[in-house]
Structures are given as C-alpha cells and as structure tokens.
Computed example of a mutant assay.
Amino acid sequence: MFMSPDHTHACGRFAPSPTGPLHAGSLLTALGSWLFARHSGGQWRVRIEDLDPPREVPGAARMQLDTLAAFGLHPDGEVVYQSSRHALYQAALERLLATGQAFECHCSRRALAATGGIHRGCVTTQRRPDPAIRLRVPDGCMIVFEDAVHGRIAQRIDQHVGDFVLRRSDGLWAYQLAVVVDDAAQGITQVVRGADLLDSTPRQILLQQALGLPTPAYAHLPLVLDANGRKLSKSDAAHPVETHAPLRALARLWQWLGQPPLALAGMRTPQDFLRAAREAFQPARVPRWLPASACAPHNTNAITPA
C-alpha cells in the first residue's frame, strides 16, 4: 500500500497555485492524488498555495475549487490557504537559523552566475538590506528515495542545487519551505503531484530531516504536454477545463493514468465514476510519461476546447 511507514492513516492532498483556472494537466494531478488517497483508505485535502502575489489571478482559487466540485472531487476538511500560515513558516525558519542550518545570504544571481547559480559559499562581501535566507547543505549530501511511479531516485543536493533559498530577498517564502511545513502540519502522508516537481523532492526531504519532520511517500504523475513538448501549464494551449461533460473528461484522465477502461454505461454523475474508479484503481499501472499521441489535440478535446 502506498503509505509512509511513519503513519498508520493515509492522507493525500492537491495543492494548486491560484494562477489561473485548472487545465487538463492540473485536473489529472487532482484526480491522481484523490485516487491514491482513496485507494489507501485515506483522506484527501486541498491546499491553495497562494504565496506569490505577483503571479496570482483574482478569483482563480474560487474557480479552481468550483471545477473540482464539478468533477466530484470534494476535499475532506476545510481548504487551507498558505497566505494565512506565515507564522508557521517563520517559526520553522527561526529553528533552522538558531541551529546554524540556515544563514543569511547577500549574494545576487549575477554574483552566482559563474557557478551556474549553485551556492556553495557566499561570493560577495557587500551586504544587502534584503538578504535571502538559505539552507546550509552539507558537502556530499545525497538524498535517496523511492518514488511510487519513477522508482529509486538519488540526488547529490550539494552538487545539483547547492544551498537553496528558504525565504527570498523580496520577503516571499520559498516553495520548498512552505510545502514541507504545511505537509507536516496537515498530516500529509503521501504527496502525489506532477513529474515536474520530482527534482524538488530531495530538497524537501532534506528540509524534513533538518526540521525533524516525517517524510511522506511520493508519487510523481506523468505530465500533460502540448504539441511542442512543453508542460501544459506553461503553454498557450492550456485552456480551462470544460465542465459540461465531466464523465467523458474523467474517462480520458483515467486512461492517461494507465488504467483499464471503465464501463460508462449507466453512469450519470461524476460520483458514479469516482466510486467505480476507486475500486478499480491500480497504482502500479500509472505510467512515468504520456506518449505524444495521448497529448495530441484530438485527445485533449474531451477535456479542453479545440
């Protein structure tokens, strides 16, 4: 069963950023995370990751929640908004600073250009009024974990990313810190999300270790790409999800998750589909990548407009 060994009850989550309406790729993640959580007999929560005001679209969070509801995806418990949780992030940051695991950094991106942006020691002596805060990554730091879809993943964090940012120089919280703190605070035991975040997972595991927090189980789902091979969220083809034919859209997403066809005859509501999907879901069938043909325009029209 897909469950962290540190927990007896499974709890998954879907955590969109309110930068626009949900598209096919984000809905695939929502359904996939729901299926993994329900397959484990656990709860499914929704968290709105609204920590980057310049990128947020007014009303997007409400639209996203309405879309989830239209597809029968209702969270257990209240929806959590990261913008209301600054005190939790500050407390975690202060713990890391107090133990010397985090430090002020006055280096600019330009100053780190010679190292490809990888910080292994400050390269400037000029102090800035708005320093970033970084995690001090030990030399030789290797993180290894088992992903339920991609198998064994290993990363030398010191060589791959270096000392990474926890709070940006503009005062905004970095994703890595916020997501680790929130997953622990919400009792999340399984993190199911897109494969574009696979590279971030070793950093988050290192932070969990530094803060003494449990490490969830991880599964990274295949990405939905446009015709040029770009992630749909970064593409002009990322149309909002159409909700007028939810059963047809859910069937397409189910296929993208590598699952055998479900008999749609007799199904009238998304809840009918989800009940059958919960019983039939086979996590081992989820593919690492979607073939180009699956993401072709004629295959996404069932979810997004032409």
Rank of each mutant, 00 (worst) to 15 (best):
Arg120Gly: 05
Arg120Phe: 00
Arg120Asn: 09
Arg120Ser: 06
Arg120Thr: 07
Arg120Met: 05
Gly121Tyr: 02
Gly121Pro: 00
Cys122Glu: 10
Cys122Phe: 02
Cys122Ile: 06
Cys122His: 04
Cys122Ala: 10
Cys122Asn: 07
Cys122Arg: 03
Val123Asp: 07
Val123Pro: 05
Thr124Ser: 12
Thr124Val: 12
Thr124Ala: 06
Thr124Phe: 00
Thr124Glu: 06
Thr125Gly: 13
Gln126Ala: 13
Gln126Tyr: 06
Gln126His: 10
Gln126Lys: 11
Arg127Pro: 05
Arg127His: 13
Arg128Thr: 12
Arg128Ala: 13
Arg128Pro: 04
Arg128Leu: 11
Pro129Asp: 14
Pro129Asn: 09
Pro129Ala: 13
Asp130Glu: 12
Asp130Ile: 02
Asp130Asn: 12
Asp130Leu: 06
Pro131Glu: 05
Pro131His: 06
Pro131Ile: 04
Pro131Cys: 09
Pro131Gln: 08
Ala132Asn: 00
Ala132Ser: 08
Ala132Asp: 00
Ala132Trp: 01
Ile133Tyr: 02
Ile133Lys: 02
Ile133Val: 15
Ile133Leu: 05
Ile133Gly: 02
Arg134Val: 00
Arg134Ala: 03
Arg134Gly: 00
Arg134Ser: 01
Leu135Val: 03
Arg136Gly: 01
Arg136Ser: 03
Arg136Asp: 03
Arg136Ala: 04
Val137Gly: 01
Pro138Phe: 01
Pro138Leu: 00
Pro138Thr: 03
Pro138Asp: 02
Asp139Cys: 07
Gly140Val: 06
Gly140Pro: 13
Gly140Met: 14
Cys141His: 12
Cys141Ala: 15
Met142Gly: 07
Met142Glu: 14
Met142Asp: 11
Ile143Thr: 07
Ile143His: 04
Val144Leu: 08
Val144Ala: 14
Val144Thr: 15
Val144Tyr: 03
Val144Asp: 11
Phe145Lys: 05
Phe145Pro: 04
Phe145Asp: 06
Phe145Leu: 07
Glu146Ala: 12
Glu146Arg: 14
Glu146Tyr: 09
Glu146Pro: 08
Asp147Pro: 04
Asp147Asn: 06
Asp147Gly: 08
Ala148Trp: 13
Ala148His: 14
Ala148Leu: 15
Ala148Ser: 13
Ala148Ile: 11
Ala148Asp: 13
Val149Leu: 04
Val149Pro: 03
Val149Phe: 02
Val149Arg: 00
His150Asn: 07
His150Lys: 10
Gly151Val: 03
Gly151Cys: 08
Gly151Thr: 04
Gly151Ile: 03
Arg152Glu: 13
Arg152Gly: 07
Arg152Ala: 10
Ile153His: 09
Ile153Lys: 09
Ile153Gly: 01
Ala154Gln: 14
Ala154Trp: 07
Ala154Ser: 15
Ala154Pro: 05
Ala154Tyr: 07
Ala154Arg: 13
Ala154Asp: 10
Gln155His: 10
Gln155Glu: 11
Gln155Arg: 10
Arg156Pro: 14
Arg156Lys: 12
Arg156Gly: 08
Arg156Thr: 08
Arg156Met: 09
